[in-house]
């Protein structure tokens, strides 16, 4: 009993006193909106580049390949710092925006591969059936291949989003106060390591677990429509 009272007192001192829980809330908000914006950018990039990757044009394929090779070959933290301290240095751009752009570009490379695999995973017979009916390449792609590709790519796509939420914990490298950083700030202010760390860990876990469940539900819905 004393043990739990002790924990509660510690928790109260570290989190509630001085309103430090607000830091966590702000950090959580930053983490979520940066991840959501980044995944939107990543999805747009991913769509375009996946189409480049399967296009007939050698130039477009090469561009997409160079992009994915470079971005996937460099850790996010390094990219983030390059974007902030080198590429966007002279623009004086808001650090949150740089974070969104960097994470978006990073995520874009992974989404590209996910979509490409999804599109190429659709049986070639589907394309042939579409084309043999007189549909153009684009019409076949848009109405026949992509709807099926989306369904197969969805599970990996959603886990990429969840991975991105976890990866945003490197944002403190460019001094963005994300959830992880909020934990750091509380740790510094209170010199208590375990309460903020465990709290942050639990919040991350709740988000990722919740999203995993949510997406699984969504996938099951989609799968059901398949069966009519």
């Amino acid at each position: 009993m004393d043990f739990f009272v002790g924990i509660f007192n510690d928790f109260y001192r570290v989190m509630i006193e001085g309103g430090r829980w607000v830091l966590l809330l702000e950090g959580l908000w930053n983490t979520i909106y940066i991840a959501v914006c980044a995944v939107l950018i990543g999805t747009v990039i991913g769509c375009l580049l996946a189409l480049c990757k399967i296009s007939k044009s050698k130039v477009l394929r090469a561009v997409a390949n160079i992009y994915t090779t470079i971005i996937r070959g460099i850790p996010l933290a390094t990219q983030l710092m390059i974007f902030y301290f080198v590429i966007f240095a002279s623009f004086g751009m808001d650090r949150h925006l740089v974070a969104i752009i960097a994470c978006g570009i990073n995520s874009g490379a992974y989404v590209t591969e996910i979509f490409r695999a999804g599109i190429q995973g659709v049986d070639i017979g589907q394309t042939e059936a579409g084309r043999s009916l007189g549909l153009s390449r684009a019409q076949t792609m848009w109405r026949i291949v992509i709807p099926q590709a989306v369904k197969t790519a969805l599970p990996t796509y959603t886990s990429e989003f969840i991975a991105l939420i976890k990866e945003t914990s490197v944002l403190s490298f460019i001094a963005v106060a994300d959830l992880n950083k909020a934990g750091d700030l509380i740790r510094n202010a209170t010199y208590n390591a375990w309460i903020p760390l465990i709290t942050v860990a639990v919040i991350y876990l709740l988000i990722t677990f919740g999203l995993t469940k949510l997406f699984a539900l969504l996938e099951r819905r989609l799968a059901r429509s398949d069966r009519g």
């Binding site: 240095a89 004086g92 650090r95 001094a175």
Partner: peptide
Amino acid sequence: VITFKSGMDAALDLKNGG
């Protein structure tokens, strides 16, 4: 107050106008 991992990072951001 914006916290950096090192003083040098903070200085770099100061130069860049952040």
